[in-house]
């Protein structure tokens, strides 16, 4: 497969991009400010766009250049813009009542990465891929997934929850670029589009929440139990 045989420069570039993306997930985890989340998410999306272009160049998948451009436009510009509009309207700029302080979240996030690495290393070992970029991609994909879930659990502002979902999506997209670069173009396009629709739907719901429920914190959504 493509990820197993790469020139050293490409290897280093891919490692740098994946690990920086993972670090940006930790930036989100370690901050209280919604603007910091947004900035980190936008930057992460740009890195993934660069990664797509790099895969296109080194792997010989020219259609991925298109995906790179679309990723930069959709995930790097349009989604952060939509989220920024939601944040502005809400007049909330920071997470007030997280269930777990950012410092503790970082520790838990670190443990989750270790867990993701153990699983990925095991999967990689059964395929004889130990030490390749594929294991790193799997680790990042699973870690970002788990960090996204962690954000959904410990953060209660609606914008943080949307960003939690987006981190999960970014992780899957990043991993899929390295593991399955040959995935049909249509699927990738539809997933990009789907993400946009999800955020638009969530934006409408946020407006309903502010108008009809008078809150943007999911801590206050406690009426339905049992």
């Amino acid at each position: 497969m493509f990820a197993a045989h790469l020139p050293p420069l490409a290897r280093s570039l891919f490692s740098l991009l994946t690990i920086t993306s993972l670090l940006l997930a930790f930036v989100m985890l370690g901050s209280r400010w919604l603007n910091a989340y947004l900035g980190a998410f936008a930057l992460q999306s740009w890195l993934i766009a660069v990664l797509s272009a790099a895969v296109a160049y080194y792997g010989g998948y020219p259609e991925l250049y298109g995906i790179a451009v679309l990723t930069a436009l959709f995930r790097g510009l349009l989604l952060p813009y939509l989220l920024l509009r939601i944040t502005r309207r809400l007049k909330v700029d920071r997470e007030l009542h997280e269930r777990l302080a950012p410092s503790s979240s970082l520790v838990v996030g670190g443990l989750l990465v270790v867990f993701a690495f153990v699983v990925s290393a095991h999967l990689g070992a059964t395929l004889g891929l130990t030490g390749t970029i594929a294991v790193l991609a799997l680790t990042t994909m699973l870690s970002m997934k788990l960090i996204g879930f962690l954000m959904l659990m410990v953060r209660s502002e609606v914008v943080s929850q949307i960003l939690g979902l987006l981190v999960i999506e970014n992780g899957i997209f990043l991993g899929s670029q390295i593991l399955v670069p040959g995935m049909p173009l249509l699927i990738e396009l539809v997933i990009l589009f789907d993400l946009l629709v999800v955020v638009a739907c969530l934006g409408v719901l946020v407006r309903y929440l502010t108008v009809h429920a008078g809150t943007t914190s999911t801590r206050d959504l406690t009426r339905l139990v049992g």
């Binding site: 994909m141 699973l142 997934k145 996204g148 879930f149 959904l152 609606v158 929850q161 939690g164 979902l165 999960i168 999506e169 899957i172 991993g175 899929s176 593991l179 399955v180 995935m183 997933i191 999800v198 739907c201 969530l202 719901l205 309903y208 929440l209 009809h212 429920a213 008078g214 999911t218 959504l221 009426r223 339905l224």
Partner: peptide, 29 residues
């Protein structure tokens, strides 16, 4: 119906199901 409860339910529905179903996407990949 745009009552407080129905919007709470809609929010939980979309967030829980989207997060859950993203696991399925990971599995498919």
């Amino acid at each position: 119906e745009k009552t407080r409860e129905s919007i709470e339910a809609a929010w939980k529905y979309i967030v829980v199901v989207s997060a859950g179903i993203s696991l399925a996407l990971l599995g498919i990949i």
